[in-house]
Design a protein around this nucleic acid. Sequence first.
DNA 1: TTGAAAGCGCTAACAT
DNA 2: ATGTTAGCGCTTTCAA
Lengths: 336, 336
Amino acid sequence: MKVGIKDIAARAGVSIATVSHAFRNPGRVSRETREKVLKVARDLGYSPNNLAVSLRTARSGNIVVIIPDVAGSHNSGIIKSIENVAHHRGYSVLLGDTQGSEDREREFAAMTLSRQADGIILMSHRLPFRIDTDHQDFSALPPLVNGCEFTGHEEVPLVTIDDVVAGEDATRHLIEYGHRDIAVITGDMNSPSSQYRLDGFRSMMKEAGLEIRDRQIIFGEYTLEGGEAAARRLLLHKTRPTAIFCFSDEIAIGCMSVLRTSGFQVPDDISVMGFDNIRFARYFNPPLTTISQPTEKIGTLCATLLLDMIDGKPPKTIRHVLPHELLVRESTRRLH
Amino acid sequence: MKVGIKDIAARAGVSIATVSHAFRNPGRVSRETREKVLKVARDLGYSPNNLAVSLRTARSGNIVVIIPDVAGSHNSGIIKSIENVAHHRGYSVLLGDTQGSEDREREFAAMTLSRQADGIILMSHRLPFRIDTDHQDFSALPPLVNGCEFTGHEEVPLVTIDDVVAGEDATRHLIEYGHRDIAVITGDMNSPSSQYRLDGFRSMMKEAGLEIRDRQIIFGEYTLEGGEAAARRLLLHKTRPTAIFCFSDEIAIGCMSVLRTSGFQVPDDISVMGFDNIRFARYFNPPLTTISQPTEKIGTLCATLLLDMIDGKPPKTIRHVLPHELLVRESTRRLH
DNA sequence: TTGAAAGCGCTAACAT
DNA sequence: ATGTTAGCGCTTTCAA
């Protein structure tokens, strides 16, 4: 039933080596034998067993992307562009949705050790290997690029935006709009990018001589529900901010929904600022002011870098900082 | 550098068969040898070459999900739940984002032929195989389950909702709210589920004795931009509908955004109804009235069915119709 | 231009 | 309980 290279060889009256060459090394086989082989292959409905090919060539043709949540709007955009370049270069992508679990990060990363994947795109802040025990040094790591997050290892190629500056830009916008009482809703603070954004917020507030009330910094998580919960805590207090800087658009959307049901108008009563510029941001009511991340470029660059590494071309630059952009729409309002 | 089963065998002073058994067939090896083997394996940093295992066992441990757009909110939710059950059952998922291209559907499906995947979850309305030529009959197809769409082949296990009834339910809601002038914005009409929804709309309108103006059926596509474009066409005409039934939430969101910028209030001037109940639907302003699809259940069932098939357990039921639900929120309004 | 043969790393039937 | 051995399906030297 399942036809292999040797069935073709038998039927075409050539050796299996010739069949193999006919496919991968057309130059080493005469035109006519090649055509004969190809025809027989077609007649027999042959399709190569890539497992065997991979075993032999030590190249699986897969890359694995390790990401906390496939369904997040920002993430799925990145995945899509990764898949796109991978496909163009003949690779498939294995999906590693970790839900933030370090165990699962490790499991997925182990697919390179077990030869099921040739490299890793890691959207996490922790390296899924024990450098000290599993690997002697970084050169022994499988091809790996770190996207959007920073593991703390300078040796690992990195694709990201400048979260500190982005945090500053967002805050500056609010300040320029006359806000003095600015709250922030962070995402998971285990992630360095969240810390950087908060650093940016703090430095800009300080620069403007504005006071930061600890109570107005809500440590949340990167979800719609996180935004809701945080907004509720914010509204509870006697004094309320005039603007809220949310560390993701999803947080902002969750937050705005609570504001609305609590009777607040955005931006008339409270300005809300997001982060990411997910697809939905400009469609929201009101359209979301946000920091735009170059989602597609991030995915494309991660994949390109990784595939180059797999091909033996180490990246010229280790640290790739892509430009972000402040997008002022209608969820923030100038005071007075 | 790369340690294999035979390195362990050598170091532990046993045969490679014993090493293999120590891992996969612990009962067939004495306690002490097994422990010795395991220890050596750990010391040497052994990790099995799953390519070799797969080649030998003829089981890749991968399933491929073929889906038009990974980044679509409805889709990514399904993928996430597929990934979840796959992972629990020891499988990985290969991502097949096709952007609607039939070629790419075929390419991804071919991964089963090339043994890189053991089965397929197909979110498309066309079978990526030529039944006549590639395969004699359906029993020769690789394990396959069809999700959310219908290929027209009754033999292929199917997980879906009843789109006709869902279309009727949506339309009935609008009619019950007093609307007589109802427009619809469809998605890609190549997809049978779109056709079914439209069938449902038509039959319900007819049942209510309401007139359907052809001009008020806009054939669009399942995107935010599709919703925008369709809404513009709708608004252009002298007479306007009082309600718009959109075939996806994304369409509805695009549509509402155009309504808003054109000065219309939703639902005061025009009611808008979505479909899918994506995560964002209830957070929208106004919260979206929609038909809820059991996203997670769809993914879970698809994966379970497929994995069972791979394990040699053919599904008892071929056609799985999951319940949908009308969710009345605030984007539709009772007339008068 | 073609073929013989070794072997990628592992599993599993069979033998001991 | 452990070992021997024959492959899984293919690529790739090396020789003819």
